[in-house]
């Protein structure tokens, strides 16, 4: 989805533009954004596939309280991407199942 640049009440203070990797694709983000927010800004809503029924899951609570946005970040599974800031060069993958450590 797109970013909001004109808003009647809020002036968004965005950081520097950085790039990170999602499933091998290079995407851009602003520093200060969470991984899940940055993926949304790039139109990516399905963040992981559930462990039992293999269903796509997206952002649900955005404050680290549900399990919906768990992804594999820099080889580490089960990262709460809704409260983890995106960093330059970060390697983010959809998590399938319960996640495996793949350093």
């Amino acid at each position: 989805m797109e970013r909001i640049f004109k808003h009647p009440l809020i002036s968004f203070k965005r950081g520097e533009i950085i790039t990170f990797f999602f499933e091998g694709r290079e995407l851009s983000a602003y520093t200060g954004e969470t991984i899940a927010a940055a993926l949304h800004a790039n139109g990516i809503k399905d963040l992981r596939y559930s462990p039992i029924r293999n269903r796509p899951q997206g952002l649900f609570c955005a404050i680290g309280k549900c399990s919906s946005c768990l992804m594999e970040v820099d080889g580490k599974p089960n990262v709460r991407t809704c409260i983890t800031p995106v960093k330059p060069g970060m390697i983010v993958r959809r998590q399938h199942g319960r996640g495996e450590i793949s350093e």
Binding site: M1, E2, A41, C61
Partner: peptide
């Protein structure tokens, strides 16, 4: 809350 986070905190529709 998630809609508000995306929209009002990060400025993403």
């Amino acid at each position: 809350g998630a809609v508000q986070t995306l929209m009002n905190q990060f400025g993403i529709l």
